[in-house]
Simulated scan of single mutants.
Amino acid sequence: MRIAELESRTGLGRHALRFYEREGLLVGICRGSNNYRDYPESAVKDAILLQQLQSLGFSLLEIREVLDAMRASSIDCAQGARLMAEKRTAVEAQIANLRKVSKVLMREQQRLEDRAARQNLPKP
C-alpha cells in the first residue's frame, strides 16, 4: 500500500511514518520500480501500536524492544515474557492513575453542575 493509504488507515502523518521507518520501527517496506514505498499490511498494525505506546509515554527504545520481541521468530521466551510483563505492569499503572484523575474530574464536574443548577444556569 502507498503512504497515503497508510496515513488514512492509521491517522498518522507521512512525516511520522517516515520517521518510524528511519528508526527501524516500521519494517518490510519495499520500493517499487517507480521508487515509491510499498508498505506491507502489517505496517497498519505496527503503526497503530507505535502510536498507542507513545501516547502512554513509552520511549522509542522501549517500543523497539516490544516490537522486536513480537517480531522475533525465535526468542528467549522467558526474557520475552518478562519484557511483556514489565510493559503490561507499566500500562496498568497508567490506567490506575488515569482512573484517579477521572474521579477528580468527575467530582469537579459534579460540583460545578450543582453550582450552576443553584444559580439557575443551563447545563452544558
Score class of each variant (00 low, 15 high):
residue 3 I to M: 09
residue 4 A to G: 15
residue 5 E to P: 00
residue 7 E to L: 07
residue 8 S to I: 12
residue 9 R to I: 00
residue 11 G to V: 08
residue 11 G to Q: 05
residue 13 G to T: 01
residue 14 R to D: 09
residue 15 H to F: 00
residue 17 L to Y: 03
residue 18 R to S: 02
residue 24 G to V: 09
residue 24 G to E: 08
residue 26 L to W: 04
residue 26 L to E: 00
residue 28 G to V: 04
residue 28 G to E: 07
residue 30 C to G: 09
residue 31 R to F: 12
residue 32 G to C: 02
residue 38 D to C: 12
residue 39 Y to P: 00
residue 42 S to N: 07
residue 42 S to V: 04
residue 43 A to D: 01
residue 43 A to V: 01
residue 45 K to M: 07
residue 45 K to C: 01
residue 46 D to G: 06
residue 50 L to R: 05
residue 51 Q to T: 02
residue 52 Q to N: 10
residue 57 G to N: 10
residue 57 G to T: 01
residue 57 G to A: 12
residue 58 F to E: 00
residue 60 L to M: 12
residue 60 L to F: 11
residue 61 L to S: 12
residue 64 R to T: 02
residue 65 E to L: 11
residue 69 A to Q: 13
residue 69 A to S: 15
residue 69 A to L: 15
residue 73 S to Y: 08
residue 74 S to L: 12
residue 74 S to K: 14
residue 75 I to Y: 03
residue 76 D to G: 02
residue 76 D to S: 02
residue 76 D to Y: 08
residue 77 C to K: 13
residue 79 Q to S: 12
residue 81 A to S: 14
residue 81 A to P: 04
residue 82 R to P: 03
residue 83 L to K: 03
residue 83 L to Q: 05
residue 84 M to H: 07
residue 84 M to Q: 03
residue 85 A to N: 07
residue 86 E to N: 08
residue 89 T to Q: 10
residue 90 A to G: 09
residue 93 A to C: 14
residue 94 Q to V: 04
residue 94 Q to I: 04
residue 100 K to T: 09
residue 103 K to Q: 14
residue 103 K to T: 08
residue 103 K to C: 14
residue 105 L to M: 15
residue 105 L to F: 13
residue 105 L to Y: 14
residue 106 M to H: 13
residue 107 R to S: 14
residue 109 Q to Y: 04
residue 110 Q to V: 04
residue 110 Q to T: 07
residue 111 R to P: 00
residue 113 E to F: 01
residue 115 R to Y: 06
residue 116 A to T: 06
residue 117 A to T: 11
residue 118 R to C: 10
residue 122 P to E: 02
